[in-house]
């Protein structure tokens, strides 16, 4: 039995040696660039001291992981990380897909191109600069909201950086603003590859625009949407550090809604700069991501094997 499988393996390798050959440069790259350094995960289970070196330092089991769960913050940061990422995943499907479909319908030669280029702009503005721009909107004294918008609405000025209730909306909005134009390009590329005859076929059958979108555009986009979602799920315990650290200006009052795992870990280790604890946090995030992706991937596979990641 075993021998037979081995024989099949040899046969497959022989048969597909051209493909394997094509694969080999990127695979070698991954080994050098990713897999060898990946052995550094052992740091998560060690208490590093430089006199013994990385390998010689004593093993400490899960001691480095303790700080992640030690305080009541553990619940808050896990909730925030999961909550925001879920919101981002959903918004990053709805908004960019809508943008892509709408742009695709504008057959005008120039306008869609201009819209698309312009919508990519926020992506180039670094989070630090974004935080200045947000401050220009929300600043207590001369921010746009307090000096123009709130009086216009007939409301009193708000101390935005001390008002946690608004921030989930702000953060989601900033995330969408920054990434929607970028992500929509992926969907637009997929739509660009669709054969126009498919739409015509529906139209000839009397299907309107909505039917064309529903029966052609969406199904054609579904695989890429699923893949993008799966990839995001893998990173669900990680977050855009700049968004949660820079943009709220580290305002303490906002912590209950802005503190995520990455910012918590950063603040925990900024003083001690403990390699072991940093590695432990990364390992924890990766393991959770891996478990979630494997689970979702299995479900996707059950429904439609063609859409699964692997």
């Amino acid at each position: 039995m075993k021998f037979k499988r081995f024989k099949i393996l040899i046969r497959d390798i022989k048969k597909y040696k051209a493909l394997l050959l094509i694969l080999s440069p990127p695979v070698i790259y991954l080994i050098i660039n990713n897999y060898i350094p990946m052995l550094g995960v052992i740091i998560a289970f060690k208490e590093i001291n430089y006199s013994d070196g990385i390998l010689g330092s004593p093993w400490v089991g899960f001691k480095n992981f303790r700080f992640l769960f030690a305080t009541s913050d553990a619940f808050v940061i896990t909730r925030n990380t999961l909550g925001y990422n879920t919101a981002f995943i959903i918004m990053n499907i709805i908004v960019p897909v809508s943008i892509a479909i709408a742009l695709n319908e504008l057959r005008n030669k120039w306008l869609p191109r201009i819209y698309q280029a312009v919508m990519l702009f926020p992506y180039f503005i670094s989070m630090v600069v974004t935080s200045y721009l947000v401050l220009a909107l929300l600043s207590h004294n001369n921010g746009f909201f307090n000096s123009a918008l709130m009086p216009f609405l007939g409301k009193d000025p708000v101390n935005w950086y001390d008002a946690p209730v608004y921030w989930p909306f702000f953060l989601v909005a900033i995330n969408v603003w920054k990434t929607a134009g970028y992500t929509s390009i992926i969907y637009l590329a997929s739509l660009a590859g669709i054969d126009p005859q498919l739409y015509e076929a529906i139209a000839i059958d009397g299907g309107g625009k909505w039917a064309q979108i529903r029966y052609i555009s969406i199904p054609m986009l579904r695989p890429i949407i699923i893949v993008m979602t799966l990839l995001s799920i893998g990173k669900i315990f990680n977050s855009d550090f700049g968004l949660f650290f820079q943009v709220p200006l580290q305002s303490g009052t906002l912590f209950p809604v802005t503190n995520v795992i990455d910012t918590y870990v950063y603040r925990s280790l900024i003083l001690t700069n403990d390699l072991g604890m940093a590695a432990a946090a990364g390992f924890y995030q990766a393991i959770v991501g891996l478990i979630l992706v494997l689970t979702t991937n299995t479900i996707v596979k059950k429904i439609n094997p063609a859409n699964s990641l692997f």
Partner: peptide, 28 residues
């Protein structure tokens, strides 16, 4: 030498980051 207090320092750093600005600025 803080090496025995790594977890405490991690937790305290976060608490301080959250409250120190509020407490010391006099805003509330």
């Amino acid at each position: 030498d803080s090496s025995a207090m790594r977890n405490e320092i991690a937790a305290l750093s976060n608490v301080a980051a959250e409250f120190d600005p509020v407490i010391s600025a006099g805003v509330v």
